Computed example of a mutant assay.
Amino acid sequence: MTNKHAFEALDKTLRDILGCRNQPFGGKVIVFGGDFRQILPVVQHGTRQDVVNASISSSYLWPTIKVLRLTKNMRLTIGCDSSNIEQTRLFAKWLLDLGEGKVGGPNDGETEIEIPDDLLIKDSLDPLSDLIEFVYPDILSNYKNKEFFEQRAVLAPTNEVVEQINNRLLEMLPGSEYEYLSSDSVCLDESFGDSFDERLYAPDILNGLNISGLPKHKLVLKVGVPVMLLRNINQKDGLCNGTRLQITSLGERVTKAQIISGTNINDMVFILIIALTPTDKSIPFNFNEDNIRFLYVLQ
């Protein structure tokens, strides 16, 4: 995902420091990790050409890089039952072919892809409910069992779809809802001068902004629901971006949860009030440093 200019800057710096101007990175061996099947560098408001041009494959360094390819999908094969090995192998091959652009025939970056029948939920009157039932079968009988959620998740293409699935799951689970709201405020500085209009930056306006780096204004939880951390809080204790937890208790200013993934499974942790500021540089104002998005590291 890193822009090629970052690698080129490192290359020129090492050449100057080591005095080896004719060798890439000053003669040092640099190991890159990444996958072109995943997301490319993000260029705000950029065209397709801008995004491709920002990739390292468009850099003058690319001819000097040796590409090493993984040939075995370890994530799919670890813990796989022997009876499902062949089915898993075929699925892994289909994923690789999809990433390599071999599915759907020749294309210039856009093509129609036919999904295998065994991966589809067909003839559904309510696809969302059927998807939830497929991923979380008999959820009312199993939601208190943390192992039920360890290996189950729904991958969604957009945040809007994520919200739809979350709301539907929340409605299915028993218990009362607990609603957490953020507290947003603008940081006034001299750049505003006398032109500051409080009506333009009222709390309800700020709360309605969907900004990069900040989740939405309202978070609704229930005891027993699975959540995922969206921030690194304490890596030593296993509270990292992507860590999954299950809510065990909800309070006004603290939430208690049990870790169900990673290296600290079964540990009980407390999530406190967390101050977050947006990373989107296109916003014409700054948030206060004490801007609170309560518990919004959870999604």
Rank of each mutant, 00 (worst) to 15 (best):
S59A: 02
G79I: 03
L76K: 10
V52P: 13
V67R: 00
T71G: 15
S58I: 00
Y60A: 02
R69N: 14
Q44A: 14
L70E: 02
S59I: 00
I78F: 00
K66N: 06
Y60G: 08
G46N: 04
N53W: 03
K66D: 00
R69W: 13
P63V: 01
S58A: 04
A54T: 13
V52H: 07
V52I: 15
R69K: 15
S58H: 10
W62P: 13
T71H: 15
R69F: 13
S57R: 13
L70M: 08
I56C: 02
P63C: 03
N53T: 12
G79M: 07
S59Q: 08
V67F: 02
I78T: 11
N73Q: 06
I65W: 01
V67D: 04
N73P: 15
D50F: 01
S59G: 12
K72Q: 11
L76T: 14
C80P: 09
L68D: 03
Y60V: 02
R48K: 13
H45N: 14
K72E: 13
L76W: 04
Q44H: 13
S57F: 05
S59R: 06
R75C: 08
I56K: 06
Y60P: 10
D50H: 15
T47P: 15
M74D: 13
W62H: 10
S58L: 05
S55G: 07
A54F: 05
G46H: 08
I65G: 08
V51L: 06
T71C: 15
N73F: 03
T71K: 10
I56G: 04
R48C: 10
H45S: 14
V52N: 09
I78A: 05
W62V: 10
Q44T: 14
P63L: 00
V51I: 15
Q49R: 04
Y60M: 03
D50E: 12
L76S: 10
R48F: 00
P63Y: 04
T64C: 10
T47A: 11
S58T: 05
Y60K: 01
T64I: 06
T64M: 02
